[in-house]
């Protein structure tokens, strides 16, 4: 499998705090990669660096072999690299169906291409993906009226609507009713296998990430602590130490 995303020695500081210190990781085409680490270890910052919300202070980021370290978030998204947020971000005053329609790939076009109504095929695709996320009956409801968990699902569906090559998910199961988590894992897997979306997932729920990911990278204090298959990372003494503080 070839590398879809390569993060090379990325450093990001906030004032005196070094949130990412020479972080390197690779996401291969077609896989589900996991990113774990204790709170404050720099996972979300790394997402911000990759998707262009934070400028990097050092290092480089390659997407499909091309440097994206100095691009802003919109051009990066147009290359096919999207993210979701830990605290959901949906268009709250718009209906779910509208949220889907404006997330379609063609909405990223220039002004002239925007001056057309949403084609039936796009609406249908939006409906299908809402059904995939289990939100079809909410399609006419305002996104802001959904529960937190439903908004997470909607945000996930919006990202899929865009047909990204790589999707970064920031704690997809946080705040979701435990009984729904299995369904969510199943949907993430299907997005990966059926829709061909490569995933990089930040997750605190160890059961979820150990089940889901093919490979896991663990961050601590802004640096890569360990990396490898789930079993190896789980067994790594340094990882246990970082989480539990065992000497």
């Amino acid at each position: 499998m070839s590398a879809l995303l390569e993060v090379r020695n990325v450093t990001r500081r906030f004032g005196g705090v070094v949130a990412n210190n020479g972080v390197s990781l690779t996401v291969r085409q077609g896989e589900i990669a996991g990113l774990i680490g204790p709170n404050g270890s720099g996972k979300t910052t790394l997402f911000g660096c990759i998707t262009g919300t934070h400028a990097v202070d050092g290092g480089d980021i390659l997407f499909e072999g091309r440097s994206i370290a100095h691009l802003r978030s919109a051009p990066i998204a147009r290359l096919g690299l999207l993210r979701t947020w830990q605290q959901t971000r949906v268009y709250s005053e718009m209906t779910c169906a509208e949220n889907m329609a404006i997330s379609a790939r063609e909405a990223q076009g220039g002004l002239l291409s925007l001056l057309r109504s949403v084609p039936v095929s796009t609406r249908r695709k939006g409906d299908d993906l809402l059904a995939f996320a289990g939100l079809h009956e909410k399609r006419g409801d305002k996104a802001g009226s959904l529960s937190f968990g439903q908004q997470k699902l909607l945000e996930f569906a919006m990202a899929l609507m865009n047909e990204p090559k790589l999707l970064l998910l920031d704690e997809p199961t946080a705040g979701i009713n435990p009984t729904l988590i299995n369904g969510l894992i199943d949907r993430l897997r299907r997005a990966n296998t059926e829709l061909g979306v490569t995933l990089l997932v930040i997750e605190h729920n160890m059961r979820v990430i150990m089940n889901l990911a093919h490979r896991i990278t663990c961050l601590a204090h802004g640096e890569v602590l360990a990396e490898g298959p789930p079993e190896a990372v789980r067994a790594d003494a340094r990882v246990l130490d970082a989480y539990l503080g065992v000497a």
């Binding site: 998707t51 919300t53 802003r72 978030s73 919109a74 051009p75 990066i76 998204a77 147009r78 999207l82 993210r83 971000r89 949906v90 268009y91 709250s92 005053e93 718009m94 509208e98 404006i102 997330s103 909405a107 990223q108 076009g109 220039g110 002004l111 919006m158 865009n162």
Partner: peptide, 17 residues
């Protein structure tokens, strides 16, 4: 509407805001 509801999200979804 997307810009109104969440500008950063609209950017992150690749809209030419």
């Amino acid at each position: 509407n997307a810009i109104r509801d969440d500008h950063d999200k609209a950017d992150a979804m690749g809209l030419r805001t």
